[in-house]
Design a protein around this nucleic acid. Structure first.
Ligand code: SF4
Ligand code: SF4
Lengths: 158, 158
DNA sequence: CAAGTATACGACCGCTGGAGTCCGAATTCA
DNA sequence: TGAATTCGGACTCCAGCGGTCGTATACTTG
């Protein structure tokens, strides 16, 4: 259930790695791949996707590589995942709007859409700068505070 | 990204349907399947899974079917999804503990685990009774209130 | 300019796992 | 007993993920 693709995983790792090495003007895909023992070619493709949406900048030629284009604090996990895996969400109706032929008879669609929204906002509030900080300062208390109240208490018609 | 399986989807729909019809002692899988236009056989298997974990009770024989075993308010979306799709989570390392061979070199694992935790708690706070209410009282303000603060502000070493 | 090194990009492929089907056995009601 | 129904596993089908390859292209250095 609810799996995050490995590509997105790699993408986040790579971004974190780049953010941790601001001294380098550009980091080649191969370097990053070797640092984490992940297939270089695959990482390259991922970074290309990220370059396309303007998260990262690519420098061709020797001593080339990738460098951050945006402030690490401004890059949310959401947009990274979105750029890599596309607009795929839990409901599978919702985004493709109506591929699931049950869209009208389904009564569960709307509540799930709200759950969807919730998860999205969680991811949107996580930035790769947070991941970097995570590595430096040990034992973090809480990265996210979430308070999801039980619903039925808030549930009231307007 | 982050897809919820259709089986889990169906499971939630079925449970909601059963919860909406407390007058019936038992509802056959076929009836529910026809109501939502989903394959009956598949739904049957889903309900069997739910019966196994004690969420629902199966009655064999004619006029048989399934009935809720627990209070709708006590059945969380989390346990339903868990029962159907198994312990599959976003990280894919985390639960299978160490199938991803990068577990040690990966620096992103822990933050993601926390995200995982967050999403889980969201699902745990949603019960099928909420879904039923959703259908009756129109225009619900908010089923879930979430406040995910930006992390870095809370981020402090102990 | 030419060589060498890097990314760019699309085609390609094996395989896992989700979606769905089938069928025989067990169970219960009439 | 017989009809109706669930039970449960085995099975097929196929989209999509993870990963590879090859070629085109762009840049740097000498
Ligand atoms: S069954 Fe309902 S919630 Fe699920 S994909 Fe179809 S319309 Fe959306
Ligand atoms: S790359 Fe890291 S976060 Fe992703 S599955 Fe492997 S250990 Fe877990």
């Amino acid at each position: 259930m609810l799996r995050l693709t490995k590509k997105a995983d790699y993408g986040l790792m790579a971004l974190k790695y780049i953010a941790e090495h601001p001294e380098a003007t550009a980091l080649s895909a191969k370097d990053i791949a070797e640092a984490y023992h992940i297939p270089a070619q695959l990482l390259a493709k991922i970074l290309q996707r990220l370059a396309k949406v303007g998260i990262v900048k690519s420098h061709a030629g020797m001593n080339g590589g990738y460098s951050l284009l945006k402030d690490p604090r401004k890059i949310s996990a959401f947009e990274v995942i979105f750029a890599i895996d596309g607009p795929l969400f839990i409901t599978s109706c919702f985004t493709h709007e109506g591929n699931c032929d049950l869209t009208n008879s389904c009564t569960i669609k709307e509540p799930l859409a709200r759950v969807n929204e919730t998860i999205s906002s969680v991811l949107k509030n996580i930035h790769i700068s947070d991941l970097v900080e995570e590595g430096r300062s040990r034992t973090v208390r809480e990265l996210i505070t979430i308070r999801a109240t039980s619903g039925e208490k808030i549930l009231q018609a307007t």
